[in-house]
Design a protein around this nucleic acid. Structure first.
Length: 467
RNA sequence: GUGGCUAUAGUUUAGUGGUAAAACUCGGGUUUGUGGUACCUGCGUCGAGAGUUCGAUUCUCUCUAGCCACCCCA
């Protein structure tokens, strides 16, 4: 096949592909870099207990609050995000992982979950389901951001969305659930920040009001804020510069400029929250980064006293999003929590994590014949619910006992040449060192009895409580 | 995306312009069928690349990554 000719023939269409191909070829020659990509992190075995805990709690709460699990692709058409999250936001402007597929589709790794879930909601006609439609998902999202602790390019979110109900009681329940989540994970000093940024109408009105106010005080603002004024005036209220916060202090607040409907909605929400005894504070400056939010917005902070406030998760209403995307007019509210951040917090406060089961029995084998037999015996024990450790690859009994000791098992079974021929097994008590020989048939029963009389835990208990 | 600090075995840390140390961990062993000790032994292209130099892990530059602040957000 004359490659050169092919390229000439399709010159314009193919040139991009050729470039791509060359890049891939080039990469092949580069040395293998044994390092994860920037902002990507391995979840190592020693951390899995925390992850397990976080996932379990999220999944259980989702179930208890009536959410059904949904999983949507990591990859969607780029404009699903650019159109709905908001063109002016950082997420869309510079933090998306976007590329063109071989088929020419412009696609992006999801920078958040809600857009994909809304797409799925509309696509599958879920508005016909009994309302509210509550959906729960957990998985990675991607943002091409500069990494820092608690900020990764790939991070996991547990995401809750409820469609088709605009009653603020749902907002309250969502916030309650968010609080329960942190509580169940053993996190202390949690703060809930709530605010209302108004509906499509009053949100815009307020924005204009704020801009004209800030314009009038422009000279008193810091450099950054002058820039913010153009892009996202609400952010000025957040500035830490003294002179800016002075200006912000007297600035008009969104809460005071809500339309009647939004005002009542927010007031009712607060009444519900009072009823729930949640540690919430109204934060008139709370703004969220995505354009689609309306009315209620909230964040969960881990408030380390006067120290840094750290956002673990956040959410809010997006009553117009489904309609904007082309679905039935459906009010909705969502909440997402960042698992890495929650886990970092669990570690910080030394919350107890789920402890995986440890084997209490070790199986040691000696000699070729015994080695063969041991494989079957291991399976036999497993079928009977006896979690057994082994080190089949090791030869000497000495090294196997060393491992058994390190694992802290209570019993070690020794299967050697002699025992294999006799159809017996030696059971060694690792604390006392006493050992006895028992027949293969009775082995399982004897082990069960021994583990039980040595009191403690019922093994293979999959129903361990979460809290 | 902007600025600052950092980078030595799996981990935590020494150290030097001239063949790299310790502790812990891990693997193997101390006469071949018995474990927490002790002893012996193995494991590093000193983050990557280039430059200065007779010679660089050490000095310079670039890159990469991590952390911190900003920004933003989960």
């Amino acid at each position: 096949m004359p490659k050169a000719k092919k390229i000439v023939d399709k010159e314009k269409n193919v040139s991009k592909k050729v470039v791509k191909k060359i890049k891939i070829e080039k990469q092949k020659d580069e040395p293998l870099v044994l390092q994860n990509l920037r902002g990507m992190k391995d979840v190592l075995p020693q951390d899995q207990a925390y992850w397990e805990q976080a996932r379990r709690v999220a999944e259980r709460l989702a179930r208890d609050y009536g959410f059904s699990r949904i999983d949507v692709p990591l990859l969607e058409f780029s404009n699903l995000f650019t159109r709905n999250i908001g063109g002016g936001t950082d997420i869309v402007e510079k933090e998306m992982y976007s590329f063109v597929t071989r088929g020419g589709d412009k696609v992006s790794l999801r920078p958040e979950m809600t857009a994909g879930i809304c797409r799925s909601f509309i696509q599958h006609g879920m508005h016909t389901l009994s309302r509210p439609v509550k959906l729960f998902s957990i998985g990675p999202v991607y943002r091409y951001d500069r990494p820092q602790e608690g900020r990764y390019r790939e991070h996991y979110q547990a995401n809750f969305d409820a469609f088709g109900e605009d009653d603020p009681i749902l907002d309250a329940q969502m916030i309650q659930m968010a609080h329960r989540l942190t509580h169940c994970l053993g996190l202390k000093s949690i703060q809930i920040q709530v605010n209302s940024i108004g509906c499509g109408v009053c949100k815009k009105d307020y924005n204009n009001l704020l801009v004209s106010y800030l314009e009038s005080k422009k000279t008193k603002l810091c450099q950054d804020c002058k820039r913010r004024l153009e892009i996202n005036p609400l952010r000025v209220l957040d500035c830490k510069e003294d002179k800016c916060s002075q200006v912000a202090a007297t600035a008009p607040q969104a809460v005071d400029h809500l339309c009647e409907d939004c005002r009542v909605h927010f007031k009712t929400l607060l009444e519900y929250l009072d009823e729930l005894d949640l540690p919430y504070t109204i934060n008139p400056r709370l703004v969220r980064g995505l354009d689609y939010y309306t009315k209620t917005v909230f964040e969960i902070w881990s408030g380390s006293e006067e120290g840094k406030k750290y956002s673990l998760g956040g959410g809010g209403r997006y009553d117009k999003l489904v309609k904007i995307m082309g679905g039935e007019d459906t009010p909705a509210i969502g909440f997402a929590v960042g698992l890495e951040r929650v886990i970092a917090e669990m570690k910080r406060v030394q919350a107890k994590s789920y402890k995986p089961m440890k084997p209490r029995v070790f199986l040691a084998q000696l000699g070729g014949l015994a080695k063969k037999k041991s494989l079957r015996l291991f399976s036999e024990l497993e079928k009977n619910g006896i979690l057994t450790a082994e080190s089949f690859g090791r030869g000497s009994l000495k090294s196997q006992l060393k491992i058994a000791n390190r694992l802290g098992v209570e019993l070690t079974l020794i299967l050697g040449q002699k025992e294999t021929l006799d159809g017996t097994v030696i059971i060694k008590n690792m604390t006392t060192g006493v050992q006895e020989t028992v027949s293969m048939e009775k082995l399982v029963d004897i082990i069960k009895k021994k583990l039980k009389t040595d009191n403690v835990i019922v093994y293979h208990n999959h129903e361990e409580s979460l809290i």
